[in-house]
Amino acid sequence: MTEVHDPLMTAVGLRKAFGRTEALRGVSMSLAPGEVLAVTGPSGSGKSTLLLCLAGVLRPEAGHVQYAGQRLDELSESQRTRLRRRELGLVLQFGQLVPELTGVQNVMMPLLLNRHDRAAARTSSLGWLERLGAGQVADVVPGEMSGGEAQRVAVARALVAGPRVVFADEPTGALDTLSGERVLEALLSSARDTGAAVVLVTHDNRVAATADREIVLRDGRADPRLVT
């Protein structure tokens, strides 16, 4: 029988540099299934780089990420892409929606990439938009949405394929307190319902306080004394 508390994801000794800037200098961490983890720290401390390494978007130069027993660096590019599409969801600060597509078309994208039937993908995407309180922008393009609406569409897109981990980089960073609260609540309650773990990069203390645990980064290292 599988141990319930086995970590879903672990990172060991991650290092990543951009030119002469060392963004990560040996970060290790783990994530339990269904856990909500906040990653905090000053600007430039490596938070977003850590998130993108965990999400399999960036490749660390040293160290490795293991997800559900598999090392990401040992997967082929196509295996990694499939993993990103099916198991991992990503929400960025400004939503990063495709500007030419409507709300529902944006949400459908991961399902279409996973070769779901178009009609079924549309029904399921509309369901997610409704659930996140963004049903009214299903047929609206991002340029005509408010910041909060666009961010909810981005959350719906991250959740639609039923990921086991959702990564969110400053999901409330561009929003006022109440819009941020609604987006966060929508994200966390949906993740709770589906059992997904959530990794939140944030400067927002309300977001950090909502998490089960916090990792504080400083100069590309995790502060070992502040992992609560």
Binding site: E185, R206, A209, T210, E214
Partner: peptide
């Protein structure tokens, strides 16, 4: 001083967590 600041952050975050739950 760092250790004090960290302990204090934990206490404040825990209190904020309680208040957010109360608010919800």
């Amino acid at each position: 001083a760092d250790a004090y600041l960290r302990r204090q952050r934990e206490v404040h975050l825990a209190r904020m967590r309680e208040l957010l739950a109360l608010q919800r």
